[in-house]
Design a protein around this nucleic acid. Structure first.
Lengths: 233, 233
DNA sequence: CCAAAGGCAAGTGCATGCACTTTTTGCCTG
DNA sequence: CAGGCAAAAAGTGCATGCACTTGCCTTTGG
């Protein structure tokens, strides 16, 4: 092998592989149903099959890939039904985070939530989808952290990342940007006045709307065809 | 190696290892902070280190074990704070399941929930802790399934199993058995009349009470001493 | 007597190799 | 020409081996 390790990143080779593959799945570069050949991945990342296997095992443990004994691994295929259940769960989890945030956020957390939210209004005016997407992600992360509950935070982040491939195109819908900001605004207002119930409801509604927007894409997405291909085997 | 495989169970060797180790952790046979030596485990289960390593990797991916690069694995240590966050999450997750159950359970599901619940009353009268514990587990599983949401089901089951070591002794508390049944009764009644809000609240309260009961044990448990041992390293 | 250095044992991380399973291919038969 | 079968190819599952890291213990200089 070539000296130390070409990818100088942190952690062991396996950790790097897990992150690398998970990233490709979450960003949609690897599509549901796509075959994950151990040898190819090993060659691609210039490591032996052992760390690849371990990485695939861990990814399958967290549900990002599906492994069939002796038959290789594929990027986890998500049925319409399961997708719906994840979106519904997401709405509930976000509702919990918003409720807790309304009750528990510190003064500093409230202030930065509000100021960043106000700042993101500019992105909406400019119609800067990508910049707004960054604010949006950050906004939701603030809610998760603001809940001051590690476990809920972890569950929410994990669920969110599994939904990432299906949320991708949502901001392409005309007017979605402005609506999203409005919905955030309702959440922020409720949190600022410590109204847990209202914050929870607003967050749940917000995700539900995103869910419906994404469902449009999911239906015509390669997911279905991959599903078919998978079932055929 | 001896022929096929001595542990004839289903799945690959790695799957068996994951289940075997997870089981020992969840049942409390392996205690938080305990060292998981690859070679010892390999010898113990009569396999090579490779499947053991993969199993440990997967267990660490789902949070049951903690892995420090080059420094081996230990059974995940749960701080008091994290434990509290898991109990709180559990209460919320159960509340969601109960709410959904009230809205979505089929007639058959409702009937069997109620009849099994009524049957478990006998266990309370007889003070049969172990038998009641079986009914109790089944009762909660019914709620998770009754929610008709795969993802929530999975999150709830996973969280519950991580809490298992800390719920163990709860029924030893005098009178807990009868109180538990009463609390279940409130949940069942709410579900039977389709009152989602009441079912959710009752389920949340139920778990909160269990949480408080368990906290007593957690505080004086080996968890603390293990924590100390771990920190010392 | 203590602190730093160095070496040793234990243990982890990854590469490689072989056995076994699944899938594919090519040939034969009806 | 479809169907079936057998052998080869491809790919997974696990064992083994070696390099490297870590923690401990001894040694040595102050």
């Amino acid at each position: 092998m070539s000296g130390k390790r070409s990818l100088v990143r942190s952690g062991t080779t396996v950790d790097q592989m897990v992150r690398a593959i998970a990233d490709r799945i979450v960003t949609g570069y690897l599509r549901p149903g796509e075959r994950l050949d151990e040898a190819s991945l090993a060659a691609r990342f210039d490591v032996s099959r052992t760390p690849v296997r371990e990485a695939l095992g861990q990814l399958s443990a967290i549900g990002l890939v599906e492994r069939r004994p002796n038959r290789g691994a594929i990027v986890a295929v998500v049925t319409q039904e399961h997708l719906a259940s994840m979106f519904e769960s997401m709405a509930e989890l976000e509702a919990i985070c918003a409720r807790f945030s309304a009750e528990r956020m510190t003064g500093a957390e409230r202030r930065s939530l509000e100021s960043e939210h106000q700042a993101s209004a500019r992105m909406v005016q400019l119609g800067a989808e990508e910049d707004y997407e960054y604010f949006n992600t950050e906004f939701h992360s603030r809610l998760y952290r603001g809940a001051h509950n590690t476990h809920i935070h972890d569950l929410t982040v994990a669920t969110r990342s599994r939904l990432a491939p299906f949320r991708r195109a949502q901001f392409m819908l005309p007017g979605r940007l402005a609506k999203s900001w409005q919905e955030h605004d309702v959440i922020v207002t409720a949190i600022m006045r410590g109204d847990a119930a209202a914050a929870g409801k607003a967050a749940r509604d917000h995700v539900s709307i995103v869910s419906e927007a994404s469902a449009v894409f999911a239906a015509v997405d390669p997911v279905e065809s991959r599903l078919t291909r998978y079932a055929r085997r």
